[in-house]
């Protein structure tokens, strides 16, 4: 599916910096931002930037990619459990598929997500790589 410029632009805070929210009522960290806390159902609009550290909850390597991502196959997608609590979906990078394990510490990096031909928009965003430094827990 063709990607729209405005779509990428309005998500820049999330894609480049993992900008989420923190609930002022129960302290729950929220990503992506949704303005209401899924835990206590109170309004939650206070910005909070996540550290980008986490661990692999699950992963899979796609040999057959959906339209728009063919050029990148095979690539590994993962569910990342962030240190602050929220989980997100992202590609893994700088790691061979057979080296990935559940529980592996990872950290966020900014990478090219996809291009749309020579004249198209290049979309950047978060991917995760094996953590270079062991996380202080």
């Amino acid at each position: 599916m063709e990607h729209k410029v405005a779509h990428d632009w309005r998500l820049r805070g999330q894609r480049y910096r993992l900008e989420g929210e923190v609930c002022e009522h129960c302290g729950n960290k929220i990503f992506p931002p949704r303005d209401i806390c899924p835990e206590c159902h109170q309004p939650a609009k206070k910005p909070y930037t996540l550290s980008g550290r986490g661990e692999v909850y699950s992963f899979s390597t796609l040999s057959s990619a959906p339209e728009g991502f063919e050029a990148y196959a095979p690539y590994t997608v993962a569910l990342i459990k962030l240190a602050e609590g929220p989980m997100l979906t992202a590609q893994l990078t700088d790691v061979a598929p057979n080296e990935v394990t559940i529980g592996m510490p990872v950290e966020m990096v900014t990478r090219r997500i996809r291009t749309q031909g020579e004249d198209g928009v290049i979309t950047y965003g978060y991917k995760f790589r094996p953590a270079l430094v062991a996380h202080a827990q």
């Binding site: 699950s58 690539y75 979906t89 996809r114």
Partner: peptide, 20 residues
């Protein structure tokens, strides 16, 4: 915005669940 944009497919979502 947060799954499909990362190159995920339905097969991949089910693979993530099955592996876990």
């Amino acid at each position: 915005e947060y799954e499909v944009s990362q190159g995920i497919s339905f097969v991949a979502l089910n693979a993530l669940l099955m592996r876990r």
